[in-house]
Simulated scan of single mutants.
Amino acid sequence: MPVTGIILAGGLGKRYNGIDKAHLSIDGRSILDRILDTFDGLFEEIILVTNHPARYASWDLFTVSDLYAVRSSLTGLHAGLFHASHGYAFVTACDMPFTDQRIIRLLLDRIDTRWDAIMPQTEKGLEPLCAVYATRCAGQIGQHIERNQLKIQRVFNPDKILRIPETRFRKIDPDLRCFFNINRPEEFVEAQRWLPQHPNGPS
Rank of each mutant, 00 (worst) to 15 (best):
A54D: 13
F62G: 01
Y68E: 13
R110A: 11
H78M: 03
T122F: 04
A54P: 01
L61I: 05
E45V: 08
P120E: 05
Y16M: 14
K124N: 06
L81E: 12
F43S: 02
D33E: 15
I47M: 11
H78L: 11
D27F: 09
Y68W: 14
Q121A: 04
F39M: 03
R102Q: 13
L81I: 06
F98Y: 13
T63A: 12
D116T: 08
H52F: 15
L42A: 09
F62I: 08
L61T: 02
L77P: 09
F82C: 08
L126N: 00
N51C: 07
S65D: 06
G28A: 02
F90W: 00
L32Y: 01
G76H: 10
L48F: 08
Y56P: 14
R102H: 05
I26W: 03
N17S: 12
E123S: 05
D27N: 12
Y56N: 13
T122Q: 10
A79L: 08
L107H: 04
D40C: 03
A93N: 10
L24M: 14
T38N: 03
A84M: 10
L48E: 03
A117M: 09
E127K: 01
F39T: 00
M119D: 07
T38Q: 00
L48W: 15
C94E: 12
G18I: 07
R15H: 14
L74H: 09
N51K: 04
R34H: 10
R114E: 14
Q121C: 00
A57C: 06
D66W: 13
I31A: 08
M119K: 04
N51Y: 02
S65C: 11
D37N: 14
R34K: 15
A93Y: 01
W59I: 04
I118C: 02
F90R: 00
S72H: 02
H78V: 00
S25Y: 03
K21R: 15
D112Y: 10
S25L: 13
E44I: 02
Y88E: 11
R71T: 11
T113C: 06
L126C: 01
R110D: 02
V64S: 09
M96D: 04
